[in-house]
Nucleic acid binder design. Structure first.
Length: 438
RNA sequence: GCCCUCAUCGUCUAGCGGCUAGGACAGCGGAUUCUCAAUUCGUUAACCGGGGUUCGAUUCCCCGUGAGGGCACCA
């Protein structure tokens, strides 16, 4: 059995979207599962619609998702070049062969392919046997001399010795054109695997570039964890069975196979993606989490003035890690750690001042601060518990007003962690200021 | 209009002739004497309809219906 060779063949005519990413992913997974070769081929035959910008978006997104290619632009390979705009000589050669076979003719300056009219049988690895008869001759070279998708796609699959064509179901009806061309060129058919489509979250139809949440680039900008997005994408149209969902990539590679792919379309669900991202975020190792967060905050221009010390930023990030589900939540969650001009939430304030004597509690805590041990959450917890016992109060009576004084908010990370990370000086100063103005 | 594909909770799915139809997300309810957007426990909810085949169909076949896709000198 010869080595599996699969390809992802995007067209740089728009931003890279989630459907394309999953097609790339399934091809990549199949190559890795079988120890085969994953080829990246750029289908840029429509000069009027292509752009270098979109091409770079594709490269960057694939890299971000971790879908490295074995042959293709920037890597090379004996079947190159890998941009169709650079393969005119190859197409010319195959066109001559087709012309010699008598299966072409000219019309209005374009070259048409004469169909056989025979029923085309496709043995699809996902759908089983599919039959379809092609009814009309079709253009393979435009009147401007540029070859058309159907032709170059087949020629390149032959020339690049592609063994498995894994692509979206929207190509299923085109496949009869392709099998006709394979046969006319005397080449064996590849194994086809038409994967179901991803439907838009709301409303009818498949997901398109214009839909909310469709662009891979956007997830990158929004601070999503690529491993989480990839894991989520795997679950759209494929299942590892045994009620498993989150699993490491090497496990996915081991389990992935063509017959396991679903036949029905899947609707995109951003909530499930958000959940998956949260799971990955909470399981991130400290170093990785800090590095990711620092990078994300920098990309958002979060620090307008001086960049804080790494050690302090790291403490803040790790304190908040269990409380957020996405790095997107971070800027809104940590503002008060990096400046004194945070606002006091009126609702939180009202809540705190409705009962008891919050100012007295804050005073007691303030008085205890100079001698307090800030080295651990446990020591600070013991301190507050001691105060509570001493003054016949609950720890909550200290925690809520103090949290308000320190952060302006009624929600936030673990209170003792908040004290520890802010440190004695900030805590004392903020409490003092709060008492003076409240 | 013609052709192709598909059909289990709202959503993603497990199931491949006999199951109390399982899991996850969302939703809802509780817990968390430090909040909560975090965490955790519990819970509501599904086999599209009609014919067959069979002792027995969610599962196999046919017909409807619904959903999706394709019918370009786009890819």
């Amino acid at each position: 059995m010869s080595q599996v060779r699969v390809r992802f063949a995007p067209s740089p005519t728009g931003f890279f979207h989630i459907g394309s990413a999953r097609t790339a992913l399934f091809n990549w997974l199949y190559a890795r599962h079988t120890g085969g070769v994953f080829i990246l081929r750029v289908e840029d035959t429509d000069h009027s619609r292509n752009s270098e910008e979109f091409l770079n978006v594709i490269y960057n997104s694939l890299k971000w998702l971790g879908l490295n290619w074995d042959e293709g632009p920037g890597i090379g390979g004996d079947c190159g070049p890998f941009r169709q705009s650079e393969r005119a000589a190859v197409y010319k050669e195959y066109l001559e062969r087709l012309k010699a076979s008598g299966r072409t003719y000219e019309k209005d300056g374009a070259t048409l392919f004469k169909i056989s009219g025979e029923p085309q049988v496709i043995e699809d690895a996902i759908r089983g046997r599919v039959e379809r008869t092609e009814e009309k001759d079709f253009v393979i070279v435009r009147s401007d001399g540029n070859p058309v998708f159907h032709f170059v796609n087949v020629v390149d699959d032959i020339a690049m010795r592609v063994t498995h064509v894994i692509r979206g179901e929207d190509h299923l009806s085109n496949t009869s054109k392709h099998t006709e061309l394979f046969k006319a060129l005397g080449a064996p058919l590849p194994i086809y695997a038409h994967i179901p489509l991803i439907l838009k979250q709301n409303g009818p139809g498949k997901m398109s570039k214009r839909d909310q949440g469709a662009l891979i680039e956007e997830y990158q900008k929004r601070g999503f964890i690529p491993e989480a997005l990839v894991n989520f994408l795997c679950l759209l149209g494929w299942s590892p069975k045994e009620d498993r969902e989150k699993l490491p990539m090497d496990e996915i590679i081991r389990l992935f196979d063509l017959p396991g792919i679903n036949q029905s379309n899947a609707r995109f669900d951003e909530k499930k993606l958000a959940h998956m991202n949260g799971v990955y975020l909470h399981e991130m190792a400290p170093d990785g989490c800090f590095a990711f967060a620092k990078n994300y905050l920098a990309s958002k221009g979060f620090f307008t003035g001086a960049q804080p010390e790494d050690a302090y930023l790291r403490d803040v990030v790790l304190l908040c890690q269990p409380k957020i589900r996405s790095f997107e939540d971070l800027p809104g969650f940590i503002g008060y750690f990096f400046g004194e001009d945070f606002a006091i939430d009126p609702k939180a304030r009202e809540k705190v001042f409705t009962k008891g004597d919050p100012k007295a509690r804050i005073q007691e805590l303030l008085a205890a601060l100079p001698a307090a041990d800030f080295s651990s959450d446990a020591a600070l917890e013991a301190l507050v518990q001691g105060l509570a016992t001493q003054n016949a109060a609950a720890t909550a009576d200290y925690i809520h007003p103090t949290r308000l004084a320190l952060s302006g908010s009624s929600v936030g990370p673990s209170f003792y962690g908040l004290l520890r990370v802010l440190g004695r000086e900030r805590v004392s100063a903020r409490i003092g200021r709060f008492l003076a103005t409240a």
